[in-house]
């Protein structure tokens, strides 16, 4: 089976600064893959290359079987993207947002009408259907953003810091949506600052200064570093001289 994502010595330089330095990894279909790193470690740059938004300086990568140099438009059609900051239009209603994105994804009108019903019903958001997105609670926005990001059934969905600030029950409902999508074969690629979040992933990679410094299941990483949590693993990797403090 072709992996959902492959990267082989993928590199991006800005002038003489190497933002992403020869990263190599594979993500399998249906996997929940956590992509971690401190601010400035190169996560965003790496993700932009995989999304077809930034041309690599060297190395190889493919996403959903498409090449990140030559087939960026195909990549964009086969992925979904959700960021906590930019996903929805605040001045459109819930219904209008679904309609708008349905149009962007090129879904036929009949399919969009079906999706509006399906999606609002599935989320139990009937009471908010005609409410402006800026007026709905954050937890609902996140669930809606995710549903919209996958309404065109992409093979891979990229989640950029998806779940900050919500209560613990809502956060878990969100993760259950992610598990459901993964169980149906969708590949999930998620970046987060919050290390407890990374423990929900099947495997995680941790970037430090443009490189992948560690990559394994959360359990194996904790064992390898003799750490009780992913937070400890992260701190050991990013503050190597201070661990145990």
């Amino acid at each position: 089976m072709v992996p959902a994502i492959t990267a082989d010595k993928l590199t991006k330089k800005f002038g003489d600064f190497t933002a992403v330095n020869q990263i190599t990894f594979e993500v399998q279909k249906g996997e929940i893959f956590g992509f971690l790193g401190a601010n400035g470690a190169g996560k965003t740059t790496a993700m932009r290359m995989l999304n077809g938004l930034s041309r690599p300086t060297s190395g190889q990568a493919s996403v959903a079987g498409f090449d990140v140099y030559r087939e960026t438009e195909k990549i964009k059609k086969h992925i979904g993207y959700m960021s906590q900051k930019f996903s929805l239009y605040e001045d459109l209603t819930v219904r209008e947002n679904i309609q708008f994105y349905g149009g962007i994804y090129g879904l036929p009108g009949r399919e969009i009408r079906h999706q509006i019903k399906e999606l609002i019903g599935g989320l139990g958001m009937q009471e908010y259907a005609n409410t402006l997105v800026k007026a709905i609670p954050l937890g609902w926005k996140q669930k809606l953003s995710f549903s919209i990001a996958i309404m065109h059934r992409p093979e891979i969905v990229f989640l950029d810091e998806p779940t900050g600030g919500v209560d613990p029950i809502t956060r878990r409902q969100f993760w259950e949506m992610i598990y459901k999508a993964a169980s149906e074969g969708m590949t999930i690629f998620v970046t987060t600052h919050y290390m407890d979040e990374s423990e929900y992933c099947g495997r995680v990679s941790i970037m430090v200064d443009g490189r992948i410094a560690a990559l394994d299941t959360p359990r194996a990483l904790k064992e390898q570093f003799g750490a009780s949590s992913m937070n400890d693993v992260f701190l050991q990797l990013t503050r190597p001289n201070q661990h145990g403090s």
Binding site: P168, I169, R172, W175, E176, Y179, K180, A182, S183, D196, E199, Y200, T217, P218, R219
Partner: peptide
């Protein structure tokens, strides 16, 4: 082996008060 089904199956178990994912 199957996190998504596990959550739902545990919620249907008769002695369950609550079942929430916590990492792995």
């Amino acid at each position: 082996n199957d996190m998504y089904r596990l959550i739902h199956d545990l919620r249907e178990f008769e002695s369950t008060h609550s079942a929430f994912p916590f990492g792995e």
